[in-house]
Design a protein around this nucleic acid. Structure first.
Lengths: 192, 192
DNA sequence: CCACCGAACCTAAAGCTATTAGGTTCGCAG
DNA sequence: CTGCGAACCTAATAGCTTTAGGTTCGGTGG
């Protein structure tokens, strides 16, 4: 049997594909070993343990998402940029549900310091700066944005909207409108 | 050894306590069996399988949350009621993190039809009706509300806010303000 | 009073999974 | 062409879920 010549990156990618195909919980060293035609224990040469592998998928997804967002918000501002950023998140969650699920677990310390995380934060801040919020409010706006987008997608992905009428697309539009309004009329520190 | 005289309810409660203490993933038939001084296989008399047990915890949590919300929003309206409902969610997530985590997984079909789920929906709608939205918009408002609350708490619980300054309490206030504004000035179907 | 019946519990076993320890082989640099 | 490191292997431990089938307890009807 020819050697598979695995690397950490190859294993991570395969794990991501497996997750997209069969769900995040399906990421298993056994399944990956089967996929590569290799013994399970061999994977430990490339990956510290299962948890570290999941962290790798997390970071991979973070980078891919940042790439998509960078493309999406280019040349846009305000509501257009907000919509582009949010839709990039939503498209990613739909097209790569397993990778997206990896983003829901707490980020590893190394991931927080990663290039991918930095880019995502920078892009989000760039979008928000179009709304000219007070500098001290940017962090609150970022948190609201992340909460709304991730919260909506989490409910949508796990079927809480139940494929029921009206379509969740309309709800999504309403959510984006609400965010746009919130950012446009953000309260100053005096008036609460 | 005296019999434990288990029931489905007793096992579910123990599972919930275990989850609050050691995390949702720690809900294990083995651990529960140890806790009751019983063989693992014996639990299968009371619970179809692990997945059904997690569904039971989900429904338990749903009922407890509905109880808290009912008390919290009594006699309040508009922003007061919104704040009470949201804070009830947040307090629950903090005091019972394991039970709250159980709510993040997709609801079982039987749970969707449960009394607890019905009460929670009714309470949420009652709160929203204070804002006098068009009837057809209630579902969108409900989705936005759920997305924002759950999304915020998910980020808060898994440490995405990093215990960093400024405190997430302020961000929470901003989020509630944004929701209140959104509900007060909800777009009609004409103006988008 | 007692036989019995169902619920509560048990033992045994199979089949996953992660993880560690230590040994083998391949390919390339010196 | 030697040797070294990376890639891979075998073997073993340990924990989890689930199924199959057997045992015992406590209350209920005869």
């Amino acid at each position: 049997m020819a050697r598979a010549n695995l690397t950490r990156a190859v294993v991570t990618t395969a794990a991501a594909e497996l997750a997209d195909r069969e769900g995040f919980e399906a990421i298993t060293l056994s399944a990956l070993a089967r996929h590569f035609g290799v013994q399970t224990a061999s994977l430990y040469s490339h990956v510290r343990d299962r948890s570290a592998l999941l962290d790798s998928v997390h970071e991979l997804a973070l980078g891919e998402l940042a790439d998509r967002i960078a493309v999406a918000i280019g040349g846009r501002a305000r509501r257009d940029a907000l919509t582009a950023l949010a839709d990039a998140h939503r498209d990613y969650a739909r097209q790569c549900p397993g990778r997206w699920a990896a983003l829901q677990r707490p980020a590893a310390a190394s991931t927080v310091r990663s290039d991918a995380a930095g880019r995502l934060v920078a892009l989000t801040l760039a979008m928000l700066r179009g709304y000219r919020l007070p500098e001290t409010e940017l962090v609150h706006a970022t948190r609201l944005l992340g909460a709304t987008i991730n919260g909506f997608l989490a409910l949508e992905v796990n079927g809480s909207f139940g494929h029921r009428e009206p379509s969740s697309d309309v709800s999504w539009q309403r959510a984006l409108s609400a965010l746009d309004t919130a950012f446009r009329s953000w309260p100053t520190e005096e008036n609460h």
